[in-house]
């Protein structure tokens, strides 16, 4: 059905997804609001990257801007190379050809993210029919296959169920089936387990991890739950006020955080490496994006602030391959 040419650039052996200097502004009344400010990262197939950060730090916006799924008030800059194709320069047709087939998304709230008046089988089949030009019966067969893949019990019967007839956990499984129905190379999951209760959360996480390994997708996982992040991801990017403040392998960042914000985040949440009974919230609140402090955005809340912090935005300094932090004091060992 879609004859849009998406042949990858020949001999592209680099990362499957490469993002450079990504910035997003929202135009509202008055001044534009800079929600994302110069984000860089690479992602290989089979790898999972986690965006970690407080509410409003820009995790969702960063992820959505990768496929330009933002309201019309948003302006996006930078480069998003997907298998060598610059996604941000694509026209609407080519962008649609990528969405759902190359890059898929799982949303937080499976109740509202599925159309209430169509059966789940229809919703999955529709995407397959559209992207792959299959017949509706073939689309339905694929839908069944997908529901079985995500371990929906009595999948054949569930094909004709409406979203409201399923439990929250099953709905999220359907969302995953929908996202994976065209065998995407990149999976974007925005807090896919936040709306579920604890036991279901773990089941869904395990399922996602299993599928991600089986299908070899590059995955971006957004959460503000550190425990969830540890469970599922290889690498982590800690976000604060629209910037990455620390990146690195998950285990390394947990064991030896190098940015005071990461330290604060680790101390304020329960996770595998935290010492019992020593929870300490970060004082203060994230800055107003319309009224940012001149230097490091975290400086007003930082317990280890020095004069240099207030002079200019620190660079994201590379500490080791794949490991970086945006703090002038990363040199001192006990940071």
């Amino acid at each position: 059905m879609n004859a849009v040419d998406l042949t990858p650039v020949e001999g592209n052996a680099g990362p499957f997804l490469s993002v450079r200097d990504l910035s997003v502004e929202f135009l509202s009344e008055g001044r534009p609001l800079r929600a994302i400010n110069g984000v860089d990262f690479d992602l290989h197939l089979g790898e999972t990257l986690c965006f970690l950060g407080e509410s409003g730090s820009g995790k969702t916006v960063t992820m959505r801007s990768l496929v330009q799924l933002l309201p019309p008030t948003a302006r996006i800059w930078g480069r998003v190379l997907l298998d060598g194709i610059d996604v941000l320069t694509l026209d609407a047709d080519r962008l649609r050809a990528i969405r759902g087939s190359q890059v898929s998304m799982i949303f937080q709230e499976p109740m509202t993210a599925l159309d209430p008046v169509f059966t789940v089988g229809h919703q999955i089949a529709e995407v397959v029919v559209w992207h792959e030009g299959l017949s509706w019966s073939a689309g339905r067969a694929r839908a069944l296959e997908m529901l079985e893949l995500v371990q929906v019990p009595s999948a054949r019967r569930r094909l004709d169920a409406y979203p409201h007839e399923l439990s929250g956990g099953l709905r999220q499984r359907v969302m995953i089936a929908l996202a994976l129905s065209c065998k995407p190379k990149v999976l974007l999951a925005d807090e896919p387990t936040t709306a579920l209760d604890a036991t279901v959360q773990i089941q869904i996480l395990l399922l996602l991890r299993e599928l991600q390994r089986e299908l070899g997708m590059a995955t971006i996982f957004v959460t503000h739950d550190l425990g969830v992040a540890c469970e599922i991801s290889d690498r982590v990017a800690v976000m604060y006020a629209g910037r990455f403040v620390e990146t690195g392998a998950m285990a390394e960042v947990i064991d030896s955080p190098r940015h005071p914000y990461t330290v604060g985040l680790l101390n304020s949440t329960v996770h595998a490496g935290s010492e019992r009974g020593k929870l300490a919230p970060i004082p203060g609140a994230p800055p107003d994006l319309l009224d940012m402090p001149p230097g490091c955005a975290f400086a007003p809340r930082c317990p280890r602030v020095v004069a240099a912090c207030r002079e200019g935005v620190p660079d994201l300094e590379q500490l080791a391959p794949g490991r970086s932090a945006r703090c002038p004091r990363t040199g001192s060992p006990d940071c």
């Binding site: 898929s104 709230e109 599925l114």
Partner: peptide
């Protein structure tokens, strides 16, 4: 409603 975003995220025209 959010499902409209799902449709767009799935590339439906």
């Amino acid at each position: 409603q959010e499902f409209v975003q799902t449709l767009q995220a799935n590339g439906l025209p």
